[in-house]
Design a binder for these strands. Structure first.
Length: 904
DNA sequence: GAGCACTGC
């Protein structure tokens, strides 16, 4: 522990230690800024004197403009901080939690504006495990104050557990580094604070709306913030883009730690870096590493758009063409070249790279970003990385970047790797809890929306809901309740967003709210990480989300509405503090938050079918999966089931070794069942058709567009595709309907208009085309000959071979009709039902045998995407799986009236 | 007569 600036008593009290450190850090940062400002001013004055009256070249004018600009920004920031400090010293609530947006950080290039009036950028230690911290003095003032809005839900204000204006350390690190970062950054040379630069600021008229990113003004940021926004807005005319970018880079919180970060990376093979959104770690750290002499840096992202937009941002900052020295690599799109030295890629993409280069020899540094999200791929990447760090030795450096909440877990996992903390920038968000649990959170949400609309200052509202149905219900409820209310309140614009909403309609959430109106965005979890909605000041959080669960015993996945974790609640609240100070209304009690909600969400790895992961690990030579060092070990039952499945598919030998077939399957970016079907398709002469079906299945669920208003027309359009195949007997069902749908779209020349006419989602179809093209390209590699039924003697009239090939992959998903008219899985005997969305739902003659793509548990166990098969195929494609006994079962059900299921 | 949270290869 660093004891330099705290007393012994303070050390004994963790909380006051944290406060003391925060205060001392703030004071230090202010002093440093002031010193920098003084230097800059001196330089500027010199040059002004030098060039007075001279004719300047454009370049010289540009250089001076840059300095003026930098000075104005710094001056505004220092003024804001000084004001904040004064207010804090006066004992009031600290007003200076401004900070600007992202400075080009985690959420893509749109965030470019960010010259912060960064108030309490602070680094400090917090008691282990306590996420509280009300940045500086901010939340401290909040002894619970009841806030009763007219007409219903009653809230209690409380900042604890919420987002402070500035997030500080959430965990006690191996102390050396974090403390070093806090206490030794920058020499702080120079002396003599400059005069308060108010005169300068007045030169800029507020000009909201351009790159400042603060939209319609910025009440919380005070003078400093407004001046900053205005200053940035006036930048482009005066300043070269490159110079402006450099100024922005220098203003990011991380900029102060460049030297320390490089030193830490040089010292430790694995470094954990924690920093909030807006700290600049994603964009700057790879650049620092390059400057520090590392030759090639890879940085993983959980999402495609993030990889793309961050790469674009960094390319701009470095003044290079995207795809040259800075590039990105995502599925369907490799925007890199020989000369690429900073590469952003999705973590799934990195997993594929492991297949060809198991030790990632091309990279000197690997940065795993957003590790706190614990996505399936991130977790697997971390497991593999931990493995290769050992034998890459000094030739590989690893950085795990995470939000502040659970970074300590990564330190433990990587054998006590040190933690480096970088402050972020955010506006404060007041957290309000309900006094008592709400009986109906949807009603409560509706009432709260109206309460906010009626009683709170301007600012858009974001409501987090579990799914499309809730969104539609709430939208209807809000329309109903606002119908009678006239213009007195101002218009309430309702904008839904969820992933399967067509993109044209998604765009509505980005249209600026007209003056006097208020927008309320009804969103699923998509707004938690994937989409950032500008202008949101109020977040309403009912505290639920849909979450996937997996039962290894039955192999069934289900989607259940569950309470969110505290980490997710904090993330949601943060969505209110991106452009101004905000409020978050939690529709649950504070007690529930602290006592009932889990700290972190269950990692995806623990609630997923791992067949594909297991196949990947096996093909990387990791044989003993039960001993593989996962951050959180998945249930052994899940691993064993995966192994059994892979064995049944012929990917594993009886000895548990990967077979040649298994190795080929691993090359395909498909779940193993599907990969097996593709590999088998060669034997049936229909690889073209099978990859089409696979491509369509992999976007399934999102293919058919069914607006409530035109539900009947949409159903009819969909039925038309299955009718084309209905006469064919075995084979009728959803798989061939998907094939027919795709081929019909292809024959239209991939026309968008065709999609509208047939109630098909364009986005999904394009994605299916991408997947299909990728699979087509991989066929050679997997050694599957391209063949199509169109070349068959009958010209492709008999499509049964397609289903037969699919059966060769999905044979374990076969079901038979029982006498009672229900379906049971042939193996296992689980009762299942045809999903109402299937073409086979309520058909006149139920097929005796069906094959399903997936099983989902909702109100019942439903088979989704179902087709009729001939039971003889089962013995044909999987004699090792279906024994004589099963054949007996087959025979038994033949007692059924032949007309019911038998094809001609 | 039910439903597709969100990613990713």
């Amino acid at each position: 522990m660093d004891k330099k600036d705290v007393s012994a008593e303070e050390l004994s009290d963790a909380t006051s230690l944290a406060d003391a450190r925060t205060r001392s850090r703030q004071a230090y940062l202010r002093k440093r800024e002031e010193a920098k400002l003084a230097d800059l001013k001196a330089e500027l004055d010199d040059e002004r004197a030098l060039f007075a009256g001279a004719r300047l070249t454009a370049r010289e004018r540009e250089a001076i403009a840059l300095k003026e600009q930098t000075y104005a920004l710094a001056a505004a920031r220092v003024a804001a901080e000084a004001g904040a400090a004064a207010a804090a010293a006066a004992g009031g609530r600290d007003p200076a939690e401004p900070g600007a947006d992202d400075g080009g950080g985690e959420d893509g290039p749109a965030a470019a504006g960010g010259m912060a009036a960064g108030g309490g950028d602070a680094v400090g230690l917090r008691p282990f495990g306590e996420g509280l911290a009300s940045g500086g003095g901010a939340g401290a003032a909040a002894a619970p104050v009841p806030l009763v809005l007219p007409g219903g839900v009653s809230f209690v204000a409380d900042a604890v557990g919420g987002l402070p204006g500035v997030e500080v350390l959430g965990a006690a690190p191996p102390p050396s580094l974090a403390v070093a970062a806090a206490s030794t950054a920058g020499p702080g040379r120079g002396a003599g604070a400059p005069a308060t630069p108010r005169r300068r600021r007045s030169r800029f008229a507020p000009d909201p709306g351009r790159e400042g990113g603060t939209g319609g003004g910025d009440p919380a940021a005070g003078g400093g913030g407004a001046a900053t926004a205005a200053a940035v807005a006036t930048t482009p005319a005066a300043l070269s883009p490159a110079a402006a970018l450099q100024a922005e880079r220098d203003s990011l919180p991380i900029a102060a730690y460049k030297a320390e970060l490089l030193a830490a990376v040089a010292t430790y093979p694995v470094l954990i870096v924690e920093g909030e959104t807006g700290s600049g770690k994603t964009t700057q750290l790879p650049q620092y590493l390059l400057d520090g002499g590392y030759r090639c840096v890879a940085c993983t992202q959980p999402r495609r758009v993030a990889a793309m937009s961050v790469a674009a941002r960094v390319a701009t900052e470095r003044g290079v063409r995207l795809g040259s020295t800075v590039g990105y690599s995502i599925r369907f799109e490799d925007c890199t070249s020989e000369e690429t030295v900073i590469k952003y890629l999705t973590d799934g993409m990195l997993l594929r790279e492991f297949l060809s280069v198991p030790d990632l020899a091309a990279y000197d540094v690997l940065m795993v970003d957003e590790a706190h999200e614990r996505s399936l791929s991130t977790d697997v990447v971390m497991g593999l990385v931990k493995d290769i760090v050992r034998f890459r030795g000094d030739s590989l450096r690893v950085i795990i970047a995470s939000a502040t909440l659970n970074a300590a877990a990564f330190c433990d996992y990587f054998d006590g790797a040190p933690l480096f903390s970088i402050p972020g920038r955010r506006f404060p968000v007041d957290i309000l809890y309900t006094r008592a649990p709400e009986a109906n959170y949807l009603d409560a949400a509706a009432v709260t929306v109206l309460q906010v609309h009626a009683s709170q200052p301007a600012g858009d509202i974001l409501v987090f809901l579990a799914g499309q149905d809730e969104i539609e219900d709430l939208e209807a409820a809000l329309r109903e309740r606002t119908a009678g209310v006239g213009g007195a309140l101002g218009e309430l614009i309702i904008a839904p967003i969820y992933a399967s909403l067509p993109s044209e309609q998604q765009a509505a959430i980005f249209t600026p709210t007209p003056p006097g109106a208020r927008k309320v965005v009804l969103a699923t979890n998509i707004a938690e990480t994937s989409v950032t909605i500008p202008g949101v000041v109020y977040v309403i959080d009912p505290g639920f989300a849909k979450q996937k669960a997996y039962n290894p015993a039955t192999g069934m996945e289900s989607l259940l509405v569950v309470p969110i974790s505290r980490a997710a609640a904090v993330q949601r609240a943060g969505r209110a503090g991106r452009t101004a100070a905000g409020k978050c209304f939690r529709l649950y009690t504070k007690w529930s938050f602290t006592h009932e909600m889990e700290a972190q969400p269950v990692p995806e790895l623990l609630r997923s079918n791992l067949a594909q992961v297991v196949l990947l690990l096996l093909s990387l030579g990791i044989d003993n999966l039960l001993a593989f060092d996962f951050l959180d070990a998945p249930p052994p039952a899940t691993l064993l089931r995966s192994l059994e499945l892979l064995y049944a598919l012929g990917a594993l030998s009886p000895a548990g070794k990967l077979t040649k077939r298994g190795r080929l399957m691993a090359e395909l970016p498909l779940e193993p069942l599907m990969a097996a079907a593709v590999v088998a398709s060669e034997a049936y002469g229909c690889s073209e058709e099978v990859i089409t079906v696979c491509a369509m299945l992999s976007v399934s669920g999102a293919v058919w567009y069914r607006p409530k208003a035109k539900a009947l027309a949409a159903d009819a359009a969909r039925a038309a595709f299955s009718r084309a195949t209905a006469a064919a007997g075995a084979g009728r069902g959803d798989h061939l309907a998907l094939l027919a749908c795709y081929n019909s779209w292809r024959d239209s020349g991939f026309a968008t208009q065709w999609c509208y006419e047939h109630f098909v989602q364009v986005r999904s179809m394009r994605r299916a085309r991408d997947v299909r093209e990728q699979l087509d390209a991989l066929l050679d590699r997997v050694g599957v000959a391209r063949a199509t039924l169109a070349d068959a003697p009958d010209g492709g009239a008999d499509q049964a071979p397609v289903l037969k090939a699919l059966t060769a992959g999905y044979f374990s998903h076969a079901c038979q009709l029982t006498k009672a008219g229900l379906y049971r899985t042939v193996k296992g005997g689980t009762s299942v039902h045809i999903h109402p969305s299937s073409a086979l739902y309520r058909t006149e003659r139920l097929p005796r045998y069906v094959l399903y793509h997936e099983l989902v548990l909702t109100s019942k166990e439903y088979m989704r995407s179902v087709s009729e098969i001939d039971p003889a195929w089962l013995r044909e494609v999987a004699p090792h799986y279906y024994t004589e006994v099963d054949v007996d079962v087959v025979g038994a059900s033949a007692k059924m009236p032949r007309a019911l299921g038998r094809r001609a």
